[in-house]
Design a protein around this nucleic acid. Structure first.
Lengths: 133, 133
DNA sequence: TTAACTGCAAATCTTTTGCACAATC
DNA sequence: GATTGTGCAAAAGATTTGCAGTTAA
């Protein structure tokens, strides 16, 4: 694989952001400094970066894939109310141990996704707030 | 919600099968006894059945959603080689406990997906087999 | 009778791909 | 100079939706 300006920008953007952006969000954001950047290229480069292990794909059912530069984090929380994604502070070793306790599977990767209300939204929900941020 | 012949058939089909079928597979299968069944209806009814808690959605990144009638099973294994889905025999309590140990999240649901080779494929891979089933 | 459900087709959304051109090594 | 990467547009795949007709209560 050889150097590419676009791929570098895309990796930096995923590393910079803490909100697990989608391909679309990355593309829109980067067009400020790279106006001709195309969404197809973003998708292609994101796939490459996942393949070489520089970033991780975070999938939420029914939503566009998101990307994370913290490749050692396998567990995420998705807020059903505001749509925000957060890393879940579960001891990774404990989860891995549970998975490895199942015989007969050759595990390569895993992802735990938890759904519910984040702290902010749980509070708003309680207060009868109807807005969405 | 009132009775519908189609919805009943769809629920029965998900319960009968053990391979976590997609909407498309369910539709194709049921057309034997219900020739005019439409894919749109299958999607609509599956969503309804998920909402009322009769079935569960099993999402695999990059693949069509699959459906499971065992609504208490939250963890699945996806074979990267043959594409088969299997329930993972992890003690549900242990997983739930790990998740609940994260403070500040109001958990409504969770799903653990593990990727790798299933027992059959691990063996074939070892033997240098190149077929896919 | 009337509100919910269906079939069908068109629309939407995400992601991939073919191709001609550009950039890297 | 050969090969890999890019932009653009079109295509593909999964899912949703509008609408007119059908069905269950």
């Amino acid at each position: 694989m050889r150097y590419s300006h676009q791929r570098e920008l895309i990796l930096k953007e995923v590393q910079r952001r803490k909100d697990y952006p989608t391909a679309e969000q990355i593309c829109t954001s980067l067009r400020a400094e790279c106006p001709r950047l195309s969404l197809g290229t973003v998708y292609r480069d994101l796939n490459t970066l996942v393949e070489v292990g520089k970033i991780r794909r975070v999938s939420i059912p029914g939503e566009a894939d998101r990307f994370d530069s913290k490749i050692l984090v396998h567990q995420h929380f998705f807020c059903n109310r505001c749509g925000k994604v957060t890393a879940l502070p579960i001891a990774d070793g404990a989860l891995r141990e549970l998975i490895d306790s199942c015989p007969g599977f050759q595990v390569e990767d895993y992802m735990l996704t938890v759904f519910g209300f984040c702290a902010d939204c749980a509070k708003k929900e309680q207060d009868g707030d109807v807005t969405n941020d």
